[in-house]
Simulated assay, not measured.
Amino acid sequence: MLTQRQDAILREVVSIYTDTGQPVGSKTLMNNLPFSVSSATIRNEMAALEDSGYLEKTHLSSGRIPSVQGYRYYLDNLVQPVSVSDEISRSIDQNFGREYHQIDDLIQESAKILSHLTSYTAITLGPEGQSILLTGFRIVPLNPHQIMAIIVTSDNNVESNIYTVDEKVDSELIEKIVRIVNDKLIGKPLIQVQKLLQTEIPAILTQYMYSDSGFIDMLSGLFKKAESEKYFVDGQLNLLNYAQDYDSSNVQSLFSMINGSDDLKQLLDTGEDNNEIIVRFGSELGNDTLKNYSLITTNYDAGEHGKGLIAILGPTQMHYSQLIGLMGEFRQEFSKRLMDYYSRYDDS
Rank of each mutant, 00 (worst) to 15 (best):
V169N: 04
P189R: 05
D7R: 09
T316I: 15
S91I: 03
P23R: 02
N143G: 01
H145Q: 03
P81F: 13
S36A: 15
M30K: 15
N287C: 07
Q94A: 11
I180H: 07
E159Y: 11
E109M: 12
L285I: 00
K230G: 04
R98Q: 12
D217F: 09
I258Q: 04
G271Q: 01
F137K: 07
T289F: 04
R90N: 12
T18L: 13
E276H: 05
L29D: 01
D263Y: 14
D263Q: 12
A302F: 02
L106H: 04
Q146K: 10
G187M: 01
K184R: 13
L267E: 03
L75P: 02
T289Y: 08
R72Y: 04
K336F: 08
D273H: 08
L197I: 01
L323G: 03
M218C: 12
L326W: 06
E99H: 14
T316N: 13
V37K: 08
S110A: 15
S83T: 06
T153P: 10
Q317I: 08
D105Y: 05
D346A: 06
V37S: 14
S38N: 12
N287F: 11
Y208K: 03
S283F: 07
V84S: 09
V79A: 15
F137P: 08
I65S: 04
R179N: 11
T135S: 08
Y71T: 06
I107E: 14
V37F: 10
E200D: 13
E172D: 08
S171R: 05
R43E: 09
A40N: 04
G97P: 01
G221E: 04
Y71G: 10
Y54D: 10
L125S: 02
G53S: 11
D217L: 14
I191P: 07
K230C: 03
V37Y: 09
V79Y: 08
M46T: 13
L49G: 09
E128P: 05
Y208F: 13
V24I: 07
I186N: 06
Q332M: 12
D212Y: 10
I216V: 05
S283A: 14
D347I: 12
D346W: 02
Y100I: 04
S62V: 03
E329N: 11
L125K: 09
S52P: 02
L114T: 00
N32E: 15
S67D: 05
D273A: 10
S110G: 15
S119M: 11
K168W: 00
S115N: 03
K176A: 03
S321T: 00
T58I: 14
Q80I: 10
S39N: 13
D155L: 08
K265L: 12
I107S: 07
F223E: 01
Y231P: 10
N299P: 00
A47W: 00
M218A: 11
L326F: 05
D183F: 06
G221C: 04
I65P: 08
S335P: 07
N31R: 15
S52Q: 12
G328P: 07
D340L: 15
V158R: 15
L55T: 06
I42N: 14
